[in-house]
């Protein structure tokens, strides 16, 4: 009986003593931190993808508390940013949701192989070595660096050897854009009902050369630029580019493109569009 009593007392005293030390130590060395950081972190997705440019979600939350200007969580999008703004008592302008877009349609069928790559399975390595398996030195290597870079499983290699982005899973974090050594992937406005139009080619060679290498390459013929009523299309270095902030999805360029290099996504099958604007 005595033994039990003594042990309880000794342990109790030691416990209380340690607790006191800990309490004072905690007071003494306390780090002042804005309580809102925790709150913001709680509403962030928590994937720590780094897509925002900050070291993880907590780093982003910390940055938001200091200034909200120009901050966007690419994963959570405007919904999350509104919550963050609510916590901070500020307003954010709703940014358009973005999505990664692969600007190459050079599948085997359209772009004949002229040699066969036999090295390490990495686009970065192949791209440092040479121009590529086809006559086009700008197109997709199809070795899947973007697939490996995506943390959300939103990119997979399609049957035609080109990466396919899953719109629903894509968070526009931009990891694939950085991973692609050919700068083929671009973040573009997702568009209403995921409808969007873009040039599926980044080939800067002259039209003759492009045409020889690939049947769906942009040959820089300028037809789309002339056709576009909104001046959204520019042709530079033999390659067209559609500015998604100006594009109104009228689809006129798609119709005039002789090589079908301009891609329309998620539109209903084409009916006769009235000519009146």
């Amino acid at each position: 009986m005595n033994i039990i009593l003594i042990s309880v007392i000794v342990l109790g005293v030691v416990g209380i003593f340690s607790a006191t030390i800990l309490y004072f130590a905690a007071q003494k060395f306390k780090v002042e931190e804005d309580a809102r950081i925790d709150e913001i972190e709680a509403v962030l997705p928590g994937a720590n993808c780094g897509g925002c440019g900050y070291p993880g979600c907590r780093g982003f939350a910390d940055a938001c508390v200091r200034s909200l200007e120009g901050k966007l969580c690419p994963v959570g999008g405007s919904a999350v940013m509104n919550k963050v703004a609510a916590i901070l008592g500020a307003e954010v302008s709703a940014a358009d949701p973005m999505v990664a877009v692969v600007r190459c349609q050079g599948s085997c069928e359209h772009r004949a192989k002229t040699n066969r790559y036999d090295g390490a399975k990495s686009c970065a390595i192949a791209s440092a070595l040479y121009a590529g398996e086809t006559g086009c030195s700008f197109g997709c290597f199809g070795l899947g660096d973007c697939v490996g870079a995506c943390q959300f499983g939103a990119i997979a290699m399609g049957a035609d050897g080109l990466p396919v982005v899953d719109d629903d899973k894509c968070t526009a974090c931009g990891a694939c854009v950085k991973a692609c050594p050919k700068n083929i992937i671009e973040l573009r406005k997702k568009g209403p009902k995921s409808r969007r139009i873009y040039v599926g080619c980044v080939n800067k060679d002259k039209g003759v050369v492009t045409r020889k290498a690939c049947s769906v390459g942009c040959i820089g013929c300028m037809k789309c630029q002339k056709e576009c009523p909104f001046e959204a299309i520019t042709v530079e270095n033999n390659c067209a580019y559609i500015d998604f902030t100006k594009c109104r999805l009228c689809r006129k360029c798609v119709a005039v493109c002789p090589t079908h290099a301009i891609v329309e996504k998620n539109f209903p099958p084409k009916k006769e569009v009235s000519e009146q604007v």
């Binding site: 040699n115 040479y130 121009a131």
Partner: peptide, 8 residues
């Protein structure tokens, strides 16, 4: 013109 590696 393309060199040995295919780059112009």
């Amino acid at each position: 013109e393309p060199d040995a590696s295919g780059n112009r």
